[in-house]
């Protein structure tokens, strides 16, 4: 009988070891892969990034993107021009592919910048509280009070309608939302008991932050990154559409739509494809973001 007891004991601990073998990252990745939508989204984004990188080599900016050709203007979609041509005879397919560069650059750039600033300020505010917290929160409130677009209007008025000023404007609103999330996450974790235990064990503050607080904040932030890139791409194209962002002849998707508006009756394809590009890109990002959210959340809504 004693033998039997020991045997069952061994099996249990071996099983436990196996279960612990997977780290959080591996576990999350495994769950992501189960989500078909998220996988499609990821594949699309990888393809898009490749296209954006290669576009510089496939197309020559001057000859393919901005050169005008009156003879082939306003052609409907055909074998030669998959998306048709615009009022200047430019191939819309080439312009759409090339335009991916602007969207990805501005989208990812603004989020990256905003992430850095927002994360830093938000964590400091959440961790130390007091004066820093008040300062950051007050700044956040102000930014909150001004709609995204109006901030961009002001900045673009100051710095001109270039991709860089658009990137800067969108970074500010991204920073605001990341600061909010980081602060909330840090405040919530700071109050947890396992942090108290860490201190009780004698860990210095910076180690507590690095080893315990930051890894646990990551989930909402990772999800927000993918979603923010998507919403910034939409914001960038909206601003360009209104004339407050990237200006023609640069083939930014929103700018292309602003241009082609007037031809909607005669050449509807000019309005359809650049917009479709935005929709599909943001859809892919949203699928990824949703997939990440479900994969990172231990209590899956099943």
């Amino acid at each position: 009988m004693e033998n039997k007891m020991e045997n069952s004991h061994e099996i249990t601990s071996a099983e436990l070891k196996q279960a612990k073998g997977r780290s959080l990252a591996q576990e999350t990745w495994r769950r992501m892969l189960k989500n078909k939508g998220a996988v499609i989204g990821m594949i699309f984004m990888i393809l898009l990034i490749i296209v954006a990188l290669l576009a510089e080599f496939i197309y020559n900016y001057d000859t393919d993107i901005v050169a005008q050709s009156a003879s082939s203007s306003f052609s409907a979609p055909s074998a030669a021009h998959i998306f048709g041509t615009d009022q200047f005879g430019r191939d819309i397919f080439a312009r759409v592919l090339y335009g991916a560069r602007y969207s990805l650059l501005i989208g990812c750039g603004s989020v990256a910048f905003g992430l850095l600033v927002g994360l830093l300020l938000g964590s400091l505010a959440g961790f130390y509280g007091g004066f820093i917290d008040n300062l950051v929160m007050r700044a956040n409130d102000i930014l909150y009070a001004i709609p995204n677009i109006l901030i961009a209007v002001v900045i673009v008025s100051l710095l001109g309608t270039t991709p860089l000023s658009l990137l800067l404007a969108l970074s500010i609103s991204a920073a605001s939302s990341f600061a909010r999330i980081a602060r909330a996450a840090v405040m919530q974790i700071r109050g947890q008991e396992y942090i108290e235990s860490a201190y009780a064990m004698g860990l210095p503050t910076w180690k507590v932050i690095l080893r315990h607080i930051i890894p646990n904040c990551l989930s909402p932030i990772i999800v927000q990154v993918t979603l923010a890139i998507g919403s910034n791409i939409i914001a960038a194209s909206s601003l360009s559409f209104l004339g407050v962002g990237v200006a023609p002849p640069m083939p930014e998707w929103g700018a292309m739509l602003s241009d082609s508006r007037q031809y909607i009756r005669s050449a509807p394809w000019m309005c359809i494809f650049p917009g479709l590009a935005i929709v599909v890109t943001v859809l892919a990002l949203n699928l990824m973001g949703d997939g990440l959210r479900d994969a990172l959340d231990p209590k899956l809504k099943k």
């Binding site: 508006r261 909607i264 309005c271 943001v282 859809l283 990002l285 949203n286 699928l287």
Partner: peptide, 22 residues
């Protein structure tokens, strides 16, 4: 819903115009 949040709304406007108006 996913399509809805992925769509820039000025493009949706243009498409609606294209369909229902033109």
């Amino acid at each position: 819903a996913l399509f809805g949040v992925s769509m820039p709304n000025f493009w949706l406007g243009l498409m609606l115009m294209l369909l229902f108006s033109l």
